[in-house]
Nucleic acid binder design. Structure first.
Lengths: 230, 230
DNA sequence: CATTTATGTAACGAACTAGTCCCTAACAAT
DNA sequence: ATTGTTAGGGACTAGTTCGTTACATAAATG
């Protein structure tokens, strides 16, 4: 066993895993934890101020700043890491939506509900995407892992559209990319533009009730559009 | 904007001019022209880089920089001026839409067409609004002239909705603010998010055909939603 | 002509900021 | 324990950015 060194050594038990404060974190664990912590903090800052507006010195105290340059090449790579994780989390959540049970209209409504709620509850994603668009997606383009995840959404929508058509519920000839565009536009805008809209029209769009109402309405709109009428 | 008025343009000479040596440029004219020129240049820069990303020294050469500090208090006031002019121009264009002729559905479609085209042809407005939302509308809130212009849009939509209901075309109970939200969301998103969307799904949304198609589709969607079915 | 207004050029310094250096602590292997 | 490696704390730096001033001068005004 080791002698407790005078400074910051607290009784450390090598094997017996009491959930004591300094559990022996392996290097890999510690590393991953540090990186995630940095991305957490950086997400807040980038989301708040954008890439150019964010200040490394405010993302972090002196200490964390040093870590940033230890684990990342610099501000830009950190920003890309923030972006990549946010997108990865969206994809993850999308994979969990049930698009099997019920008829196609019900499945589509579930997807819409999910979209509206996800955007409303994850304004940080919305803001990051806005930021990317202000920068003409130049950072997004440097992240190689994204394209396939996006194709999946289209496949899902295509499947629902085909099923709905087969069930005699939906019109034919609806482009799944159009559907995705409209669906996302209606879920995205009221988060992305909440501040100007709230100011200009004096409405709140952030309450649970407002979000639930929004999800309902977006469902109504999209379904009115795709539904076969006769 | 006014006449270019290089030389020999008469500004105002009602009384005290015998043989009228034409003044070259009046102070007021020159001033207005200088301000507009600065706002032109600044709009480009802010639209491209955002408020924090924009660099005064790049907005202007040394000369124009001097003018900026002559006519504006600084970067922030210049930014507000850019914002205010962009909004003023939207309002101006909205006032020109014909919402009288034809039935309510036709009037609404004309309004939608206008919205889609205006957003598509004025990405600088879209970008400024995005920027404002990233900054939680803090600069917009400092511009006092906006609220009434926005109320006008709602009044217009309310008028169309009432007329449509009276004509037996539209459902009752549609909130004009909701209508505006949905309408704008569908016109705004495909401009605001064109870069991420184009990258993720490989589509172009900027061609004249794409815009015309978009206008048509947004019209279809909104009308499907508000139309009374029976 | 004299005065005021506008503008071109340059320079400056204070404040910031991204990124780096040096050194120590924690951990791992021997 | 000794030694080497990984991680990180604190201060520093080199380079920008911004706002401002000084100065000259041109143009409009009276």
């Amino acid at each position: 066993m080791r002698e407790p060194s005078t400074l910051s050594e607290v009784a450390e038990l090598p094997e017996s895993d009491t959930d004591a404060k300094p559990p022996r974190r392996s290097r890999a664990e510690s590393r991953e934890q540090a990186i995630n912590q940095i991305i957490d903090i950086a997400t807040n800052e980038f989301v708040e101020k954008g890439l150019a507006g964010a200040r490394i010195d405010e993302i972090a105290g002196k200490a964390t700043k040093r870590k940033i340059y230890y684990y990342f090449e610099g501000k830009d790579e950190l920003y890309r890491a923030v972006l990549a994780r946010a997108y990865a989390q969206v994809r993850e959540s999308e994979a969990e939506v049930d698009i099997e049970s019920g008829n196609a209209a019900e499945a589509l409504r579930r997807l819409i509900e999910h979209d509206v709620h996800y955007h409303a509850r994850h304004p940080e994603l919305v803001r990051l995407v806005m930021n990317e668009n202000i920068h003409r997606a130049e950072h997004l383009k440097q992240i190689p892992t994204l394209p396939q995840g996006n194709r999946r959404v289209i496949e899902i929508l295509q499947a629902i559209l085909s099923r709905g058509e087969a069930e005699g519920l939906f019109r034919a000839g609806i482009d799944p990319v159009d559907l995705h565009l409209n669906l996302t536009a209606l879920s995205f805008y009221n988060v992305s533009n909440q501040f100007t809209f709230a100011h200009n029209f004096g409405v709140d769009m952030t309450s649970d009730e407002a979000i639930a109402r929004r999800a309902q309405q977006v469902g109504d709109i999209i379904l009115a559009w795709v539904t076969k009428k006769d």
